[in-house]
């Protein structure tokens, strides 16, 4: 599950980092700008991730995504389980430093994509090339 709670179906050909970027960009853009974590954090996440997607990211950037996220939503953050990774699900709710759910929603796709598909992000960093894709991600 990604984003605000809407369910999106993507197959194995989907470029996960790019899909996460699309969603994060959407929420960063939706920020009203009132509170700091969302206004500054959302855009920061988007910019780090877009560098990674462009093949210009570093290992440190991957950790930095979690760090920025921690400043938006402190502590454990929900994600689905993964039998492949032997990972149990973390349930809702999450804690948040923001006024509303827009800020956390900018982080949610990154958090779950990076937790469940870290290898795809790492390959962007180490191999500096793109996984062939058929879809540019879930835009809506």
């Amino acid at each position: 599950m990604l984003g605000s709670g809407a369910i999106m179906v993507m197959d194995h050909t989907t470029d996960i980092p790019r899909a996460a970027l699309t969603l994060t960009r959407f929420y960063a853009h939706e920020s009203c700008g009132k509170c700091t974590p969302c206004r500054e954090g959302g855009t920061w996440l988007e910019r780090i991730l877009s560098r990674i997607v462009d093949g210009k990211g570093t290992d440190a950037d991957l950790d930095q995504l979690f760090e920025v996220g921690e400043s938006i939503c402190p502590g454990a953050f929900p994600h689905a389980s993964s039998s492949k990774l032997g990972l149990a699900a973390t349930p809702f709710p999450y804690r948040m430093n923001t006024i509303c759910f827009v800020g956390p929603s900018a982080y949610a796709p990154i958090h779950s994509a990076l937790t469940l598909f870290r290898d795809e992000f790492e390959s962007r960093v180490t191999k500096r090339h793109r996984i062939p894709v058929t879809s540019s991600g879930a835009t809506s």
Binding site: P37, E40, W44, E70, S71, P74
Partner: peptide, 17 residues
């Protein structure tokens, strides 16, 4: 430590730009 982390986090965000 959680409060301290939150204070640091917000300050880092305020200083980002």
């Amino acid at each position: 430590p959680q409060v301290k982390r939150a204070h640091e986090g917000i300050l880092e965000l305020l200083l980002a730009n």
